[in-house]
Design a protein around this nucleic acid. Sequence first.
DNA 1: AAGACGAAAGTGGTTGA
DNA 2: TCAACAACTTTCGTCTT
Length: 302
Amino acid sequence: MVVKKCPKCGSTNLVRDYEHGELVCADCGYVISENIEDLGPEWRAFDSDQIKSRVRGGAPTKFTSPNKGLVTEIDKYDRDIRGARISQKKLAQLSRMRKWHKRASIATSMERNLAIALTELARICSYLGLSDETKEEAALLYRKCVQHELGRGRLIESLVAAVIYTVCRTQNIPRTLDEIARVAGIEKKEIGRAYRFIRRELKLNVPLTNPKSYVPKFCAALKLSGKVQERSIKILNKAMKKGLVSGRGPTGVAAAAVYISAALEGERKTQKEVADVANVTEVTIRNRYRELKKELKLKVEL
DNA sequence: AAGACGAAAGTGGTTGA
DNA sequence: TCAACAACTTTCGTCTT
């Protein structure tokens, strides 16, 4: 995979905001591109040699389809290979073949489980606006869970939700347990339990949620400028050095930083507006805001 | 009238015995 | 499994713009 760097500060710690198609530097807040390009393999060919060398590659292996994308399908183009029409009798036969071919391909119970899980996974990812890359990562992790026989005595859906949550955390994509619980239709408590379980069993090292990754999301929702984003990131960097971040809810910290930055940049939002998009209360914003103001000696004029 | 502020009491989750 | 604990929320009264 191509590792991109921030042109401003050189950091590789980039955060994606898929809802608004932006790539943002987590260290200085610089907005790198309006449209996130496809980071997957490039299948273009520029001359005939390349065409020859690449044409037999086929599509990239997909973890989201039950058979990893390597299917033999009987198509629905009811002609023989010369393009002549097929008789009614043959047509019925073909349709039966299609049916059984399809059934045979999801025959074992594990594969049936996967088929259900991956459908659900695709649905949730789409609702959460997650990229294909993230979706594939989640599908891969789900397969790993199945191999390790996690998920026994657990709803398929809660494992799927937990896997998605895990991948979002590792990829620094700002999605809260609440958001995932809402679209998955599973209780937050249940997802959290499944999440801790797979983290323990697979010995995953999931980093703490960085408040910085929420900044682009909140700013976009509040229609705030890139200036505010950069400022928020700066504030959060300082806050982290002072230890004002650990132990506190990442959304609350991020919300306070955005609230302060908006005021400093003359794009003031009310505490309630910020609180709503961050899904915390005004009181929490006030508490974090007070800490930040005190420790960082910020001069915020009302 | 609306927003900002903070105190006090209540809630749900984590942790350590 | 239970109790202590910290973070967060709810609620409410007061002050500021």
